[in-house]
Amino acid sequence: MALLEIKNLHASVAGKEILKGITLNLEPGEVHAIMGPNGTGKSTLSNVIAGRDGYEVTKGQVLLDGEDVLAMAADERARAGIFLAFQYPVEIPGVTTSAFLKTALNAKRRAEGKKEIDAMDFLKLVKAKTAVLGMPYDMIKRALNVGFSGGEKKRAEVLQMTMLEPRVAILDETDSGLDIDALKVVSDGVNSLRSPDRAFLVITHYQRLLDYIVPDHVHVLANGRVMATGGKELALELEAEGYAKYLETAA
């Protein structure tokens, strides 16, 4: 059984159908990349899986280990192991990164029947993880994402991911706004989490990221449908030829 199964998923926003029947199977240990032009439904797909309000699923299913994800509230999905690294992480004034991380970590631990992490262990963990990502440890004292540069926000997303150790991680254009050094650091962070029982859905606009996070499968999403699926060479082909051929087919 696949770790995450997306079966014939249709979803609309404000009465307009955006996802028009998407089927994807993420086996444990796999990295799937989704590429596609802007406005094609990539963020919609990630939001529907993560459970954001305002999206209406009109048909289809999403299953995590065979469990109906769409029946769960957003926070339950996260505790079940779905993680979305946001394309646009929100700034939350007044809430320190540290308080946020600790609350999130403890929510997960409670769901797993573990007791809350003690303060010293928490600090140790954050120190280790921030060091790997080349982030100053002090950033956890700052308000969540407030005043972070684009790159810092993306690193903070990956920091959260490495702390929460999800089963399925969806990265929505985590590479946008990153310079080449940051891209390497973030990719290293992602690669460090790759494991036989975890799967990734990496949404990107550029082939570049996939040089660092090497996918097992690449899908082309256009006009709300998966138009093509292939290996990592498909990403190179898209880079060279663009999406025109898939958009024509869709029309």
């Binding site: 993560a50 459970g51 954001r52 309000d53 509230a73 957003a74 926070d75 996260a78 505790r79 993680f83 979305l84 946001f86 992480p89 929100v90 939350i92 004034p93 007044g94 809430v95 308080a99 946020f100 609350t103 999130a104 929510a107 997960k108 769901a111 308000a143 959260q160 929460l164």
Partner: peptide, 22 residues
């Protein structure tokens, strides 16, 4: 939603946001 996507239940999320606001 951001807090929910990190597994934080709605009541805890509200408290965190209110404390953050103040």
């Amino acid at each position: 939603f951001y807090l929910a996507a990190r597994g934080i239940d709605p009541e805890t999320a509200r408290s965190l946001l209110v404390e953050g606001f103040l």
